[in-house]
Structure formats: C-alpha cells, structure tokens
Nucleic acid binder design. Structure first.
Lengths: 253, 253
DNA sequence: AGGATGCCTTGATCCGGGTCAATTCGCACG
DNA sequence: CGTGCGAATTGACCCGGATCAAGGCATCCT
C-alpha cells in the first residue's frame, strides 16, 4: 500500500529534526558536536566555529543542495530532513551513493577532486549547516580535535562504502539497510524500531544495487515473516535481532 | 597458461620499485612526495617527516603487513611490491578491498575504528614506509600541505570505493580494472600498456565481485577480440581506447 | 469530477554469471 | 623423477534477481 500523508507536506520537516542550537550552544546532534565538546564550549575557538558555519535551507524535496561539477567550497551537516547523494553517468543512469540523516555530513568526497563528484538532493524538507572548508581546515590545524574529527568522518565513510561493494543476496542487503538506518537513528536519539523511510523504493533499490521490484518483494516477504511491519514508508522493526542476523555480513562489528 | 617465472623469486622485488631515497631526498614516487615538495625540501619540518617514517620490509608473498583487529598506530606507503587488503567474515569468506601499488598508501580506513578493519597481505616481495599516525597528524597540524594531503588521499579512496559498488557487467568490470591499473602504473612512471598482474585470477574476481571463472572467460574473450595479449600474469593492452570505452562507467572522468 | 502521473506491488519470463566438474600446466617437494 | 597441489581454463548446467507487464492506489492538475 502506498504511503499515507504525513502532515500535509508543509514547511516544517516531517522527519526528526536536530537541535537547532543558538549562538553559544551549537547543534547538539550535529556530527561536529563531539569535536566541539572536545575543544571545550568555552574556548575562544568555538567562536570561530560559529563564524565559519552558516545555516542554510529550507530545501524542498527534489531540490539540489549541490550538483556534480560545482566547485568544492564547503561541506554540509544535515540539520533536519534527509538527503541522497547520487551520480548520473552520461547515459543518464542514476547511481545512489548514500542517504544522510540529521547530524550527518555530506560533501567529504569532494575534497580530492575539488569539485563535487555527485549531486545532493533533498528527499524531504531539509536544513543544513554549511561549513566553509578552507576555514574548516584552517581551524583543524589549530584544534587537533577538529582535525581528528574530519579524519574520522572520512575514514568512517570509507568503511561503509566498502561494505556495500560485497556480493550479497537481496535479503542480506535489505535487512542490513534497515538495521543500518535503525542504528543511525538510534545514535542521534531517535527511535530505532519505528521510523519513516524518506526515500522511495526505487532509491533504496538503486542504492542497494537491486531492482525496485526486488526490494518490494523482499519487504513483502519480511512482513509475511513477521520481521517488520510496513505500510507505505512507515516502518516498524518487529524482530531486529533476526534482521541483524540476516544482514550481519554487511553490518559493522 | 600459468605465470612464467620472473626473476626466480629472489629478495629483490620483481615488480617496479619506487625510488628508495636517502636521508635528505625522500622517496620520489611516494604518495607523500607532493606534500613534501609543497612543504619545501629545505624546511626543517622535513627532518620531522624523516623522523616519523620508518622503512620496513621485506615482506614475502602471503605475509601480513597488518591484521584485522590490530591497533591502529601507523599508515604504510608501499615502497615496492604489491599488496591486497581484505576482510574475512566470520564464515571465513574473503572479501578483497583493494590492491596497492608502489607509491600508494594503506591503512587509512583504520583511522575511525582505531583498529585495522582488514588484513593487508603482500602479493609479492614488498617494502614499505611506515608512518606513525599520531606523529603524522601532529605534523599535519603544523604543515597545511600535509594535512591537505591526508584529506585528499582519504577523499580519493572514498571516490574509488563507491565506483566499485555500482551494478555493472563482468566486461565493464574487468575492462575498468585493467585500465585503472594501467593508469596507476602510468602515474608512477611505469609502462601503461605492459605490466605484470601480481594478483591471482581469484583475487581479481573477488575484488570485482565476480567468480574466478568469469574473469578467466572475459580475459580469454578480450584476447580473442585483440583487446589484450595475456599469458599467465603478463599482460599487454593492445587496444586501451576500446577497453576504456567498455569500462567507462566505472572509470573516473 | 475526471484524467494524468508517480509509486508500489505482484506475477511471468528470461538471462548473466555462479556453481560444479573435468582437464591442463607449472612448480615445489620428497 | 614422479607426485601432489594450486592456479587457470573451458564446458555444462542452473538459479537469483532483472526485466517486462499489468493493476491498484495515492496525489496533483485542470
């Protein structure tokens, strides 16, 4: 069954929203929060972090945050909403690289080429913190915790990228995908067993290198096996243990 | 036909060897050379770079440079020889993550987890420069070029990792693999049309998420189509243009 | 309201590449 | 100098998931 309306698709983001923060208290759920805490909220460097960050948005579903080929000047932390990144080859085939939830960071893969190698597209109404990268790396030079944080984020993304590459069955991929999302929501303090899928079946399938029909079939089977409850894009994990087991080959630890 | 002997498998590495360098002139083909040059060879910082680097090796074919779970203390630049990195899941299935040629760097994916998430195994006799990572990041704080170089390497590896993930035919994968190797040899100043494959068909297949038999078949077909000449592990690219065309979806640019 | 559109689901069919198997070759080793 | 073992090649067969097709059900437009 198709999705039910959420809230009439209004300005306010339907998915979990990260703490907005104010001048002195920086977004609590942001990917940089740990770096900030390590640096110490009272340190003068924090003032600089405030300087190099800029709140942008809202972007509506389908709008681009950046496009392939745009010169790389900044990275973006998702403040609210969901984003997919994708490459489009010259035959027009789309390739979804990843989905990003509140608190996560996009644009890191543009450092090397110095131009964005992919598009970033909002899946629902989304807000961001924009970090000037030159300013950021200058700051990283002076605050080891910031530098380390950047290294860690890059290295982490490297780890997840290589997991997807393995040859795994459709069941493994879908189960791992659901558990991965659940874990990421949990880290940010949201429910790990009930959440909304902001992306279409087609996007999920593309990301997992499957056909949309296959994703649909697997989800239907998982439902009939009492592993999940799903109605449109509203999802509940009924048996996370079993799901983790199925997807274990694709999951960390 | 299987491989022909190269040089009797003796201490000296059979594959291209990077410039060994001495106290003041650091390995010319090393991945860090550009950072060094940017910093200036005469700068006192270079002395520190000399301090934090340590030449290790030789490792013989099959020996581990590091193992899954080892605490992360250093990254390694390949000085000579070839390395594969791989993960082994708990069912014992191997997953090849990448091959590394002289001048390239392994271990970056360990920064985040702080333990190596994979094994690194020498494919032939191999030598390395070992860079203490704490020292390296301390240096990165003081020399922007070093920091930027680390960022770039991480970001670059991120880009290549996501290419493999796409769903592509066996022909595309194999062609792209060969052209990628050719390009990487060319960058380091080696022949881009004739080179030795240090890895087995099985490793290639595993890396490309194919069966060894499929790789073998594709190579045979490429040979019958006059695209390559191959005997055992000695390879010559007869029609790089066509190969690039076949593999374009997986290749940069 | 009526029609168009996009997303999702489900069924039927097909094919690329995996799996199994046999053979050959080269090399290490007793 | 066999002998055994691993890597590579080639053939025969099969299966998971892609593709094609049809139908349902929302939302959006006019």
């Amino acid at each position: 069954m198709p999705s039910k309306p959420l809230a009439g698709r209004l300005p306010e983001p339907p998915s979990p929203i990260a703490d907005d923060g104010d001048e002195t208290r920086f977004c609590g759920t942001c990917a940089f929060s740990s770096a900030c805490i390590a640096a110490g909220y009272d340190k003068p460097e924090l003032a600089e972090l405030q300087c190099l960050v800029e709140h942008v948005g809202p972007f509506r579903a389908g709008e681009h945050i950046f496009r392939t080929g745009d010169p790389f000047r900044a990275i973006f932390a998702v403040r609210a909403g969901t984003v997919k990144t994708r490459m489009v080859d010259k035959e027009g085939r789309e390739q979804v690289l990843g989905f990003y939830l509140p608190g996560e960071v996009i644009g890191l893969n543009a450092i090397y080429p110095e131009h964005f190698p992919c598009d970033a597209v909002a899946l629902d109404t989304a807000y961001f913190c924009r970090f000037s990268f030159p300013a950021m790396s200058a700051l990283a030079s002076r605050i080891p915790a910031v530098q380390q944080h950047l290294f860690r984020m890059l290295s982490k993304e490297l780890g997840t990228a290589s997991l997807l590459a393995g040859d795994h069955s459709a069941d493994e991929r879908v189960a791992a995908f659901l558990m991965d999302l659940a874990g990421r929501y949990a880290v940010r303090g949201f429910s790990a067993t009930r959440f909304h899928l902001s992306m279409s079946r087609g996007d999920i399938a593309n990301y997992l290198r499957l056909a949309a029909e296959t994703v649909s079939r697997v989800l239907s089977r998982f439902r009939s096996q009492q592993l999940i409850e799903i109605e449109g894009r509203e999802l509940e994990l009924l048996n996370p243990k079993k799901l983790r087991e199925i997807g274990q080959a694709l999951l960390p630890e």
